[in-house]
């Protein structure tokens, strides 16, 4: 089976963490401009996790989240997920949508959905452009799709993409802060099985 990612050394993970860190920095700057409020992101956690553990990162597979999903096409095919707790998602877009917000705590108006999609676009775009700079590879995101549901159900579509070849996913996970407040959001990059090798080779890391 194609679980080569389990053999990634600490060096490989730290290279990816650094790339992720710069990508997250670009994304934070872009988001701060869009939202007119300071957004910070912490240094990403890079880990190889089993399918069962992946949704634990966001509070378990039943945790209600808003999930933005896009595919990365080009030379390093991957999946990108941006998961936010519903309350955090509401807060994040409140300034953008004003009166067009849904009054229900767990429902989202069309304006809120489209603002969140745009945020997903910006995050993925800035992250990918930094990844493309480092790897010198062509990468382009598809338009984002969005769902409000259980984290496990949302993430499973990315795991199914990996499904035939692997039981582990390489996860680059970044958390967010808006000013003083913590926005409970996670950004996941899941390279397809064949992409892990290309990704690391292009970053000058040999897989053991």
């Amino acid at each position: 089976m194609n679980d080569e990612i389990r053999n990634l050394g600490e060096f490989g993970l730290s290279v990816l963490r650094e790339v992720g860190n710069i990508g997250a920095g670009h994304a934070a700057t872009a988001l701060s401009q869009l939202l007119h409020s300071e957004i910070q992101m912490n240094v990403p956690r890079v880990a190889v996790v089993s399918f069962d553990e992946i949704s634990d990162v966001v509070g378990g597979s039943e945790q209600l989240v808003i999930g933005i999903f896009l595919r990365v096409e080009g030379e390093i095919p991957s999946s990108i997920f941006f998961l936010l707790e519903t309350e955090s998602a509401k807060r994040l877009v409140a300034g953008l949508v004003g009166d067009f917000a849904s009054s229900e705590a767990e429902e989202f108006s069309e304006m809120e959905i489209s603002a969140l999609q745009e945020i997903g676009n910006i995050l993925a775009g800035s992250y990918l452009s930094s990844l493309a700079d480092f790897t010198k590879k062509e990468l382009s995101p598809t338009p984002p799709a969005i769902a409000v549901d259980m984290a496990g159900a949302i993430l499973s579509i990315g795991l199914i993409q990996l499904g035939p070849a692997a039981d582990y996913a390489l996860v680059v996970d970044t958390e967010f802060l808006q000013g003083e407040r913590e926005i409970k959001g996670h950004f996941f990059l899941l390279p397809d099985p064949g992409s892990v090798q290309i990704l690391f080779e292009s970053l000058g890391v040999e897989l053991g």
């Binding site: 496990g152 949302i154 499973s156």
Partner: peptide
Amino acid sequence: MADLNIAAAPDSLRTTGLG
């Protein structure tokens, strides 16, 4: 996920987050 198991009365089986 990608798992299975059996149980006999009175126990039950549970799986979460089926998409």
